[in-house]
């Protein structure tokens, strides 16, 4: 889920960069010096996780996991995703410099939303509710990211409308897959290491 360099129009690039700058500033403000290693190691872990190829029918997809990242890292998701994407740009030339802002916001915006919608209510005693919320955070994050991606293309030019529609539709299976993976993953984390989710007492 990266927009390549040279595709988007200047206003979209500037808007993305501005939103990301604000988000990163907010994230850095909330991140004290002591928590830098924690955020960094988790950023690296998410980076590695995004390299896993998950089979889906005849092909395989890479996970984005921005919903889970939002829940685990909160506002630090912005700097974390920025660093992750910068590394991808430098290591694999995915994305690039001018699209760094847009691409970061496309992934980090939904991550923050998931943090506020689901991050704090994971302590609920009702296991079914927790699973439902975990699934939604994976599903919703990809849905919103692909919608943002589509919007960036549409704001660049009307001629992208068709491509944008297909992009969102193509992400549909990925949404379900991510929902499923995040649901399993969160259930596992709640059982084994609830501290990681900022939960002080084990729920269940």
């Amino acid at each position: 889920m990266h927009i390549s360099e040279g595709v988007l129009s200047p206003p979209v690039l500037v808007a993305g960069a501005a939103l990301t700058a604000a988000g990163v500033a907010m994230g850095l403000k909330k991140m004290d010096n002591e928590s830098i290693p924690r955020v960094a190691v988790l950023t690296a872990a998410f980076f590695v996780a995004s390299l896993i190829r998950v089979p889906l029918g005849p092909s395989a997809v890479h996970l984005v996991l921005n919903g889970l990242l939002g829940i685990v890292l909160g506002w630090a998701a912005f700097p974390a995703i920025l660093v992750g994407l910068a590394l991808q740009a430098l290591l694999f030339q995915f994305g690039g410099l001018t699209t760094l802002g847009v691409n970061t916001f496309i992934m980090a915006g939904p991550a923050i939303l998931c943090y506020y919608l689901f991050g704090r209510s994971l302590t609920s005693k009702h296991p079914g509710l927790v699973t439902a919320m975990a699934f939604s955070s994976g599903f919703l994050a990809i849905l919103l990211s692909s919608l943002l991606l589509a919007l960036c293309l549409i704001f660049t030019g009307e001629s992208f409308l068709q491509a944008a529609k297909v992009l969102v539709l193509a992400h549909l299976p990925v949404m379900f897959l991510e929902g499923l993976i995040v649901a399993f993953c969160l259930a596992f984390l709640m059982k084994v290491k609830p501290e990681l989710l900022g939960v002080t007492h084990a729920a269940g």
């Binding site: 190691v41 988790l42 889906l56 996970l63 499923l180 399993f184 993953c185 990681l196």
Partner: peptide, 29 residues
């Protein structure tokens, strides 16, 4: 790996384990 629930569950636990190991490592660092 294949397109089935078992694969997805196993890979999720793999990711979970990766996060836990990194969380512990981060604390040691």
């Amino acid at each position: 790996p294949g397109t089935n629930l078992h694969t997805y569950r196993s890979l999720s636990y793999l990711i979970g384990m990766l996060l836990i190991k990194s969380f512990d490592r981060a604390d040691r660092i």
